[in-house]
Amino acid sequence: MAISASEVEHVAGLAKLAFTDEELQKFTGQMDEIIGMVQQLSEVDTDGIPVTTHVTDATGVMREDVAVSGTPREELMRNVPQHQDGYIKVPAIIDESEEA
């Protein structure tokens, strides 16, 4: 096995995803297979080879710092699941009932 169920669970936590036990088993098997496939890269000699992270010629793109009007607030709020008085509404960041 290239990856264990507990490692998959750890990665899921980093990715803000949760799985049931059954899903975790399925994903672990599939992740294992995928990681096995991508590990064939280890046979390639990449000593001294630079990385390619993009394929544009562009370097820093600059523009004049001119003020322009932005998107109206009402427009921006159109897809917000819960809002009130022009603010986005979210649950408490710290749930006090969870404290020991």
């Binding site: 803000k16 995803l17 949760a18 897809n79 917000v80 699941p81 819960q82 986005i88 979210v90 649950p91 408490a92 960041i93 710290i94 749930d95 009932s97 969870e98």
Partner: peptide
């Protein structure tokens, strides 16, 4: 938070994300 599906029945912000 800003758009897309938000789960119901959540206790805290972490819950909203996950």
């Amino acid at each position: 938070i800003r758009y897309g599906h938000r789960a119901a029945d959540v206790k805290n912000l972490e819950d909203v994300y996950v």
